[in-house]
């Protein structure tokens, strides 16, 4: 028996909206500790990793580990039927479920929707993501980072991110010209302005903006985002989900000349 009831169902809707352009189908692994999901994009350049802890759910029960193979497109269609204020419950009684039940309840419990989504069996090639002690960590407003990526992608497909003790510099070079945005440490009490840099070792890495713009669809999940970098490592972009867990995106760097 597996049942997970999320009080703020809108969080689940936002997670699926955040990843639907990146991955087509995913395996959600349910265990006693919660839900986890890991999937790569079709070009094997990016990896998304979701972890939702059982204690972040209103109700959570998972008698034995199960894997739920879902089509993101079909999941999206079902979730469109959930109101932003609904609770969302996932449920199955089978051990090898062929479908997953969804219940959407409004606040007054006066409207209850029930859907059943057919499951897929996906070969799960999961990757080992080593715990990395990143040498450059940037915490900043997710809206601000999203804006920087959007603005720079009009000049080039590739952004170079260079960190130093007191600032991070996003540089682009394209046919029309070049540009850079430098963001400094800023302990402002305004969320949108605050920038925290923890730079043990400066890094200079190059990434495809197309992927960063896809990752930034997760801005609605958290007002802050952290960029985690070490030389010769994928960039890890993390959106923490209050009291529930985190959505992490990994992007392999480009070889820059």
């Amino acid at each position: 028996m597996f049942e997970a009831k999320l009080q703020q169902g809108v969080i689940f809707k936002k997670i699926v909206d955040a990843i639907k352009d990146l991955v087509k189908s995913v395996n959600i692994d349910a265990s006693t500790s919660g839900l986890s999901m890991q999937a790569m994009d079709s070009a094997h350049v990016a990896l998304v990793s979701l972890k939702l802890n059982e204690n972040g759910f209103k109700d959570y029960r998972c008698d034995r580990p199960i894997t739920l193979g879902l089509s993101i497109e079909n999941l999206s269609k079902i979730l469109k039927c959930a109101g932003n204020d609904d609770t969302i419950t996932l449920q199955t009684d089978e051990e090898e479920p062929s479908s997953l039940k969804f219940f959407f309840e409004n606040q007054q419990a006066s409207k209850i929707s029930e859907f059943s989504l057919n499951l897929m069996s996906l070969d799960s090639e999961s990757l080992g993501i080593p715990d990395t002690d990143y040498s450059s960590v940037i915490q900043m407003s997710s809206a601000e980072f999203s804006r920087i990526c959007k603005e720079l992608s009009s000049i080039s497909e590739t952004v170079e991110i260079e960190t130093s003790k007191e600032s991070v510099k996003f540089s682009v070079q394209g046919d029309i010209g070049a540009g850079s945005i430098t963001v400094k440490n800023n302990q402002s009490d305004k969320d949108v302005d605050r920038v925290d840099l923890q730079i043990d070792q400066p890094v200079k890495l190059t990434f495809a903006l197309r992927y960063l713009n896809m990752f930034n669809k997760a801005v609605s999940l958290s007002s802050t985002v952290s960029l985690n970098m070490s030389e010769e490592n994928p960039l890890m972009v993390e959106y923490k989900i209050d009291d529930l867990g985190s959505l992490r995106f990994y992007l392999a760097p480009k070889i820059s000349d």
Binding site: L127, A252, K254, I255
Partner: peptide
């Protein structure tokens, strides 16, 4: 010219 590396270069398949 830059070229894109594959995520498999960095994370081993379990």
């Amino acid at each position: 010219q830059t070229d894109q590396r594959d995520i498999h270069l960095f994370f081993s398949i379990l």
